[in-house]
Protein backbone atom coordinates (compact mmCIF):
# COMPACT_ATOMS: atom_id res chain seq x y z
CA UNK A 1 0.00 0.00 0.00
CA UNK A 2 1.34 3.42 -0.98
CA UNK A 3 1.80 5.70 2.02
CA UNK A 4 3.53 8.68 0.44
CA UNK A 5 2.84 9.82 -3.11
CA UNK A 6 4.59 12.83 -4.61
CA UNK A 7 3.88 14.05 -8.15
CA UNK A 8 5.54 16.90 -10.06
CA UNK A 9 6.48 18.72 -6.87
CA UNK A 10 8.06 22.17 -7.21
CA UNK A 11 9.24 24.75 -4.70
CA UNK A 12 10.98 28.05 -5.36
CA UNK A 13 12.43 30.37 -2.72
CA UNK A 14 12.92 34.09 -3.15
CA UNK A 15 16.23 35.12 -1.65
CA UNK A 16 17.14 38.77 -1.06
CA UNK A 17 20.29 39.90 -2.87
CA UNK A 18 22.44 42.80 -1.76
CA UNK A 19 25.32 44.49 -3.52
CA UNK A 20 28.45 44.94 -1.45
CA UNK A 21 29.13 47.89 0.83
CA UNK A 22 27.02 50.68 2.31
CA UNK A 23 25.79 51.79 -1.13
CA UNK A 24 24.49 48.28 -1.74
CA UNK A 25 22.74 48.25 1.65
CA UNK A 26 20.92 51.54 0.90
CA UNK A 27 20.05 50.38 -2.62
CA UNK A 28 18.57 47.15 -1.25
CA UNK A 29 16.19 49.16 0.96
CA UNK A 30 14.98 51.39 -1.91
CA UNK A 31 14.88 48.74 -4.59
CA UNK A 32 15.15 45.25 -3.10
CA UNK A 33 16.46 42.65 -5.52
CA UNK A 34 15.18 39.11 -5.13
CA UNK A 35 16.71 36.00 -6.64
CA UNK A 36 14.58 32.97 -7.31
CA UNK A 37 16.11 29.69 -6.23
CA UNK A 38 14.46 26.52 -7.40
CA UNK A 39 14.87 24.27 -4.36
CA UNK A 40 12.77 21.37 -5.68
CA UNK A 41 12.20 20.77 -9.40
CA UNK A 42 9.42 18.52 -10.57
CA UNK A 43 10.10 15.50 -8.38
CA UNK A 44 8.06 12.27 -8.32
CA UNK A 45 8.29 9.29 -5.99
CA UNK A 46 6.20 7.04 -3.80
CA UNK A 47 6.83 5.12 -0.58
CA UNK A 48 5.10 1.93 0.51
CA UNK A 49 3.84 1.02 3.97
CA UNK A 50 6.56 -0.27 6.32
CA UNK A 51 9.41 0.79 4.01
CA UNK A 52 12.58 2.33 5.43
CA UNK A 53 13.73 4.75 2.81
CA UNK A 54 16.83 6.92 2.70
CA UNK A 55 16.31 10.33 1.16
CA UNK A 56 19.78 11.74 0.72
CA UNK A 57 21.67 14.46 -1.06
CA UNK A 58 24.43 17.04 -0.54
CA UNK A 59 23.78 20.23 1.45
CA UNK A 60 21.30 22.49 -0.34
CA UNK A 61 20.05 19.66 -2.57
CA UNK A 62 16.41 20.11 -1.54
CA UNK A 63 15.92 17.20 0.85
CA UNK A 64 14.91 19.22 3.91
CA UNK A 65 12.61 21.38 1.76
CA UNK A 66 10.95 18.18 0.51
CA UNK A 67 10.55 16.81 4.07
CA UNK A 68 9.08 20.13 5.19
CA UNK A 69 6.56 20.00 2.34
CA UNK A 70 5.70 16.38 3.18
CA UNK A 71 5.04 17.31 6.81
CA UNK A 72 2.96 20.40 5.95
CA UNK A 73 5.50 22.99 7.14
CA UNK A 74 6.12 24.50 3.71
CA UNK A 75 3.62 25.14 0.93
CA UNK A 76 4.64 23.75 -2.50
CA UNK A 77 4.42 26.02 -5.57
CA UNK A 78 2.90 23.26 -7.69
CA UNK A 79 2.49 19.50 -7.81
CA UNK A 80 0.69 17.17 -5.47
CA UNK A 81 1.58 15.43 -2.20
CA UNK A 82 -0.38 12.76 -0.42
CA UNK A 83 0.75 11.31 2.88
CA UNK A 84 -1.61 8.55 4.07
CA UNK A 85 -4.17 9.98 1.64
CA UNK A 86 -3.95 13.39 3.37
CA UNK A 87 -2.90 16.60 1.65
CA UNK A 88 -0.31 18.12 4.05
CA UNK A 89 -0.95 21.67 2.83
CA UNK A 90 -4.69 21.61 3.35
CA UNK A 91 -5.00 19.22 6.31
CA UNK A 92 -1.86 19.90 8.29
CA UNK A 93 -3.44 19.32 11.70
CA UNK A 94 -5.08 16.03 10.65
CA UNK A 95 -1.76 14.83 9.25
CA UNK A 96 0.13 15.74 12.43
CA UNK A 97 -1.78 13.01 14.32
CA UNK A 98 -0.53 10.40 11.83
CA UNK A 99 3.15 11.33 11.51
CA UNK A 100 6.12 11.74 13.81
CA UNK A 101 9.18 13.91 13.23
CA UNK A 102 12.66 13.88 14.70
CA UNK A 103 15.15 16.57 13.78
CA UNK A 104 18.65 15.68 14.99
CA UNK A 105 19.70 19.31 14.96
CA UNK A 106 16.68 20.67 16.80
CA UNK A 107 15.37 19.56 20.17
CA UNK A 108 11.60 19.25 20.44
CA UNK A 109 11.64 18.25 24.10
CA UNK A 110 11.30 20.68 27.01
CA UNK A 111 14.79 21.03 28.45
CA UNK A 112 13.73 21.80 32.05
CA UNK A 113 11.23 18.94 32.32
CA UNK A 114 12.01 15.31 33.05
CA UNK A 115 11.77 12.70 30.29
CA UNK A 116 8.58 11.34 31.90
CA UNK A 117 6.93 14.80 32.06
CA UNK A 118 7.90 15.41 28.45
CA UNK A 119 6.32 12.16 27.30
CA UNK A 120 3.16 12.95 29.31
CA UNK A 121 3.12 16.37 27.60
CA UNK A 122 3.34 14.82 24.13
CA UNK A 123 0.60 12.36 25.08
CA UNK A 124 -1.65 15.28 26.07
CA UNK A 125 -1.07 17.33 22.92
CA UNK A 126 -1.91 14.30 20.78
CA UNK A 127 -5.18 13.85 22.74
CA UNK A 128 -4.19 10.45 24.17
CA UNK A 129 -5.90 9.46 27.42
CA UNK A 130 -3.82 9.44 30.63
CA UNK A 131 -4.08 5.66 30.96
CA UNK A 132 -3.02 5.02 27.38
CA UNK A 133 -0.13 7.51 27.65
CA UNK A 134 1.12 5.64 30.75
CA UNK A 135 0.96 2.33 28.86
CA UNK A 136 2.78 3.81 25.85
CA UNK A 137 5.49 5.32 28.09
CA UNK A 138 6.01 1.94 29.76
CA UNK A 139 6.18 0.10 26.44
CA UNK A 140 8.45 2.59 24.65
CA UNK A 141 10.78 3.19 27.57
CA UNK A 142 11.36 -0.57 27.66
CA UNK A 143 11.96 -0.76 23.90
CA UNK A 144 14.33 2.23 23.93
CA UNK A 145 15.89 1.55 27.36
CA UNK A 146 14.83 4.83 28.97
CA UNK A 147 14.07 3.49 32.47
CA UNK A 148 17.44 4.53 33.86
CA UNK A 149 16.94 8.25 33.17
CA UNK A 150 13.18 8.66 32.81
CA UNK A 151 13.03 10.98 35.83
CA UNK A 152 16.02 13.10 34.80
CA UNK A 153 15.51 16.60 33.33
CA UNK A 154 16.28 16.55 29.60
CA UNK A 155 18.98 19.23 29.99
CA UNK A 156 21.04 16.75 32.04
CA UNK A 157 20.97 13.96 29.43
CA UNK A 158 23.76 13.04 27.04
CA UNK A 159 23.14 13.69 23.34
CA UNK A 160 22.59 9.98 22.67
CA UNK A 161 20.06 9.69 25.50
CA UNK A 162 18.30 12.83 24.28
CA UNK A 163 17.95 11.54 20.70
CA UNK A 164 16.46 8.30 22.08
CA UNK A 165 13.92 10.38 24.00
CA UNK A 166 13.21 12.54 20.91
CA UNK A 167 12.39 9.37 18.95
CA UNK A 168 10.16 8.05 21.74
CA UNK A 169 8.36 11.43 21.96
CA UNK A 170 7.75 11.25 18.21
CA UNK A 171 6.33 7.73 18.59
CA UNK A 172 4.02 8.33 21.57
CA UNK A 173 0.93 8.78 19.34
CA UNK A 174 1.70 5.65 17.24
CA UNK A 175 2.46 7.51 14.00
CA UNK A 176 2.23 5.55 10.77
CA UNK A 177 5.13 7.45 9.22
CA UNK A 178 8.25 8.64 11.01
CA UNK A 179 10.40 11.37 9.44
CA UNK A 180 13.96 11.25 10.75
CA UNK A 181 16.11 14.21 9.73
CA UNK A 182 19.74 13.39 10.53
CA UNK A 183 18.93 11.51 13.75
CA UNK A 184 22.53 10.45 14.43
CA UNK A 185 24.27 13.78 13.85
CA UNK A 186 26.97 14.48 16.42
CA UNK A 187 26.80 11.04 18.05
CA UNK A 188 29.76 8.75 18.70
CA UNK A 189 29.96 5.46 16.70
CA UNK A 190 28.74 3.26 19.57
CA UNK A 191 25.69 5.43 20.27
CA UNK A 192 24.98 5.71 16.53
CA UNK A 193 24.94 1.93 16.25
CA UNK A 194 22.63 1.72 19.25
CA UNK A 195 20.19 4.25 17.74
CA UNK A 196 20.19 2.37 14.43
CA UNK A 197 19.36 -0.91 16.22
CA UNK A 198 16.49 0.79 18.04
CA UNK A 199 15.08 2.29 14.83
CA UNK A 200 15.25 -1.13 13.19
CA UNK A 201 13.56 -2.75 16.18
CA UNK A 202 10.83 -0.11 16.11
CA UNK A 203 10.26 -0.71 12.38
CA UNK A 204 9.96 -4.47 13.00
CA UNK A 205 7.62 -4.11 16.02
CA UNK A 206 5.26 -1.41 14.77
CA UNK A 207 5.75 -1.62 11.00
CA UNK A 208 6.22 2.18 10.98
CA UNK A 209 7.25 3.63 7.62
CA UNK A 210 10.57 5.46 8.06
CA UNK A 211 11.67 8.37 5.89
CA UNK A 212 15.30 9.04 6.75
CA UNK A 213 17.73 11.75 5.73
CA UNK A 214 21.32 11.49 6.83
CA UNK A 215 24.82 12.39 5.71
CA UNK A 216 26.11 9.29 7.48
CA UNK A 217 26.40 6.53 4.90
CA UNK A 218 26.35 3.83 7.61
CA UNK A 219 22.88 4.99 8.69
CA UNK A 220 21.64 4.53 5.15
CA UNK A 221 23.50 1.26 4.53
CA UNK A 222 22.42 -0.37 7.78
CA UNK A 223 18.83 0.81 7.92
CA UNK A 224 17.40 1.29 4.46
CA UNK A 225 16.66 -1.07 1.60
CA UNK A 226 15.83 1.75 -0.78
CA UNK A 227 17.58 5.03 -1.48
CA UNK A 228 16.46 8.20 -3.23
CA UNK A 229 19.22 10.66 -4.09
CA UNK A 230 18.31 14.27 -4.70
CA UNK A 231 20.69 16.84 -6.11
CA UNK A 232 20.03 20.40 -7.30
CA UNK A 233 16.36 19.86 -6.53
CA UNK A 234 16.01 16.83 -8.83
CA UNK A 235 15.91 13.13 -8.12
CA UNK A 236 19.03 11.63 -9.65
CA UNK A 237 18.57 8.09 -8.37
CA UNK A 238 15.71 6.04 -6.93
CA UNK A 239 16.79 2.46 -6.50
CA UNK A 240 17.28 -0.38 -4.04
CA UNK A 241 20.44 -0.36 -1.95
CA UNK A 242 21.52 -3.67 -3.54
CA UNK A 243 21.19 -2.27 -7.07
CA UNK A 244 23.03 0.88 -6.06
CA UNK A 245 26.00 -1.14 -4.87
CA UNK A 246 25.86 -3.58 -7.82
CA UNK A 247 25.68 -0.94 -10.58
CA UNK A 248 28.41 1.17 -9.16
CA UNK A 249 30.76 -1.65 -8.27
CA UNK A 250 32.74 -1.30 -11.48
CA UNK A 251 35.69 -0.03 -9.53
CA UNK A 252 38.06 -1.92 -7.22
CA UNK A 253 40.73 -0.56 -4.94
CA UNK A 254 44.03 -2.43 -4.48
CA UNK A 255 46.38 -1.53 -1.66
CA UNK A 256 49.72 -3.29 -2.08
CA UNK A 257 53.04 -3.30 -0.26
CA UNK A 258 55.87 -4.28 -2.63
CA UNK A 259 59.53 -5.17 -2.36
CA UNK A 260 60.30 -3.22 -5.55
CA UNK A 261 58.25 -0.36 -7.02
CA UNK A 262 56.08 -1.08 -10.10
CA UNK A 263 54.90 1.66 -12.51
CA UNK A 264 51.16 1.53 -13.26
CA UNK A 265 50.78 5.07 -14.61
CA UNK A 266 50.82 4.05 -18.26
CA UNK A 267 48.22 1.28 -17.91
CA UNK A 268 44.76 2.17 -19.19
CA UNK A 269 41.99 1.73 -16.55
CA UNK A 270 44.36 2.09 -13.58
CA UNK A 271 44.53 5.25 -11.52
CA UNK A 272 47.23 5.61 -8.89
CA UNK A 273 45.54 7.08 -5.84
CA UNK A 274 48.54 7.07 -3.50
CA UNK A 275 52.19 6.14 -3.90
CA UNK A 276 54.66 6.25 -1.04
CA UNK A 277 57.98 4.45 -1.47
CA UNK A 278 56.98 0.87 -2.28
CA UNK A 279 53.40 1.21 -0.98
CA UNK A 280 50.72 1.75 -3.60
CA UNK A 281 46.99 2.42 -3.62
CA UNK A 282 45.42 2.05 -7.06
CA UNK A 283 41.88 2.17 -8.41
CA UNK A 284 40.92 -0.17 -11.24
CA UNK A 285 38.10 0.62 -13.63
CA UNK A 286 36.85 -2.92 -14.38
CA UNK A 287 35.04 -1.69 -17.48
CA UNK A 288 38.43 -0.91 -19.07
CA UNK A 289 40.67 -3.58 -17.59
CA UNK A 290 39.92 -6.66 -15.51
CA UNK A 291 41.43 -7.50 -12.16
CA UNK A 292 43.37 -10.55 -13.45
CA UNK A 293 45.23 -8.44 -16.02
CA UNK A 294 46.27 -6.01 -13.29
CA UNK A 295 47.39 -8.77 -10.93
CA UNK A 296 49.47 -10.32 -13.72
CA UNK A 297 51.46 -7.06 -13.85
CA UNK A 298 52.74 -7.70 -10.34
CA UNK A 299 55.22 -10.50 -9.77
CA UNK A 300 53.86 -12.57 -6.82
CA UNK A 301 57.41 -12.78 -5.45
CA UNK A 302 57.45 -8.97 -5.24
CA UNK A 303 54.35 -8.76 -2.98
CA UNK A 304 54.72 -8.31 0.77
CA UNK A 305 51.03 -7.61 1.46
CA UNK A 306 47.92 -7.02 -0.66
CA UNK A 307 44.33 -5.93 -0.01
CA UNK A 308 41.58 -5.78 -2.67
CA UNK A 309 38.36 -3.97 -1.77
CA UNK A 310 35.22 -2.50 -3.32
CA UNK A 311 34.78 1.24 -3.63
CA UNK A 312 33.20 2.35 -0.31
CA UNK A 313 29.50 3.26 -0.51
CA UNK A 314 30.42 6.76 0.63
CA UNK A 315 32.61 7.16 -2.47
CA UNK A 316 29.83 5.78 -4.71
CA UNK A 317 27.38 8.30 -3.33
CA UNK A 318 29.89 11.14 -3.66
CA UNK A 319 30.40 10.16 -7.31
CA UNK A 320 26.64 10.36 -7.89
CA UNK A 321 26.57 13.78 -6.18
CA UNK A 322 29.40 14.89 -8.49
CA UNK A 323 27.62 13.27 -11.48
CA UNK A 324 30.71 11.20 -12.32
Amino acid sequence: MTIIKVENLNKTFKVKQKEKGLKGSIKSIIKPKLNEIKAVKDINFSVDEGEMIAFIGPNGAGKSTTIKMLTGILYPDSGSIEVLGINPTKQRKKLSYEIGTVFGQKEQLWMHLTVYDNLKFFGAIYDISERETEERIKELSKLFDLQEFINTPVRNLSLGQRIRCEIVAALIHRPKVLFLDEPTIGLDPVVKENIRKLIKRMNNEYHTTVFLTSHDVSDIEKLCKRVIIINNGQIVLDDSMTNLKYHYLDKKVIEVKLKKKVDFNSVDGIKVLKSKENNLKIEIDTKKTDLTTVLRLIDPENIIDINISNTPLEEIISQIYRKE
Binding site: K68, T71, G72, I73, L74, R92, K93, L95, S96, Y97, I99, T101, F103, K106, Q108, I125, Y126, D127
Partner: peptide, 11 residues
Protein backbone atom coordinates in the same frame (compact mmCIF):
# COMPACT_ATOMS: atom_id res chain seq x y z
CA UNK B 1 12.77 29.09 11.17
CA UNK B 2 12.12 27.56 14.62
CA UNK B 3 8.42 28.16 14.03
CA UNK B 4 8.55 25.19 11.62
CA UNK B 5 8.91 22.76 14.53
CA UNK B 6 5.69 24.01 16.09
CA UNK B 7 3.68 24.11 12.88
CA UNK B 8 3.57 20.35 12.41
CA UNK B 9 2.10 19.68 15.84
CA UNK B 10 -1.62 19.18 16.47
CA UNK B 11 -2.22 22.58 18.05
Amino acid sequence: GNIAYNINKPY
